[in-house]
Amino acid sequence: MNRIVSVALPLAVFLGLAASAAIVAGRVLPARQAATMAQEPVDLPDVRLTDQHGHDAALVSELAGDDLLVVTFNYTSCQSICGVGNAIMQELDRTVAPQVERPVRLVSITINPTVDTPDILAGAAREWAPSERWLWTTGRPGDIDKVLRQANARTADIELHELVFIVGDGRRKDFRRMPVNDGTVSGIIAALDGYGR
């Protein structure tokens, strides 16, 4: 299955569900309002991760550091929601820098660390042409589980795992779970911009 088809089908389903939810709610939220709505605090653990280039770094103290951070979860053989999450991260990778005053690090963390080695992640990442700001990462299974628990990300059924985005400020150690809807990209950018200089 090519990348366009593998992204288009879950994206269509996702957008359909988002539109249905907006209709039921009676309105579509503006991006700024979506950015401040239902952001659960997340205590991200400072676990060590290895990126697609084979470099190791601690999630909070090194990858976030003093910068802004966006985290999501995927795995390389995914045929469901990962394409949507990757498309959102790709759009952020292409558009976030000119819209936010501070540097931003994008981190995709595999939920299948026993399979997704750095080499496998590198092959999968190439399809999405990430810049140096977007890292595809793996780690020890126990450490990945710890991040998933802290993010309250449901992954019991790997094929039906939840689409989750964590947005935060490494300097303040303030990380929050973002709502996912049809304004996710603009909502994430607004949330990042809200952290200021």
Rank of each mutant, 00 (worst) to 15 (best):
D56L: 06
A19H: 04
V180T: 12
V104Q: 06
L59G: 07
V96F: 00
I111V: 14
A153D: 01
L11V: 03
G170L: 03
N181M: 04
S61W: 00
A129D: 09
G194H: 14
A156C: 01
A35K: 13
P113R: 02
V42A: 05
L135N: 13
P179R: 10
L69Y: 04
V147D: 10
V84Y: 01
T184N: 00
E62Y: 08
G183Q: 13
W134C: 07
V115H: 11
V28F: 08
L148W: 02
R197F: 05
V107N: 10
A8T: 15
W134S: 12
V96W: 04
D157P: 06
A153C: 11
R102V: 11
R27L: 03
L160M: 15
A190L: 10
D46F: 01
D116G: 08
P179C: 06
R27E: 14
L11F: 07
R176C: 11
E101A: 14
T137Q: 13
R32W: 03
S80Y: 05
L15Q: 14
D157W: 00
E162T: 10
V164N: 12
L29K: 15
W134K: 12
I166M: 08
I120E: 03
E91N: 12
I189W: 08
A151S: 09
R105A: 15
G85F: 02
I120H: 02
R48D: 07
E101H: 04
E127M: 11
L92A: 13
M89F: 08
A57M: 02
A129Y: 06
V107G: 05
D93F: 00
V42G: 07
Q33H: 04
V100S: 07
R27H: 08
V42H: 08
V7D: 14
N181Y: 03
M37Q: 15
P45T: 02
E91W: 02
W136K: 10
A64L: 06
G123P: 05
D157I: 05
T114Q: 15
T137S: 13
Q90S: 15
S20G: 13
T114M: 09
V13K: 11
L160Q: 13
V115R: 13
Q150H: 09
S131V: 00
G83P: 04
V96Q: 09
I158R: 08
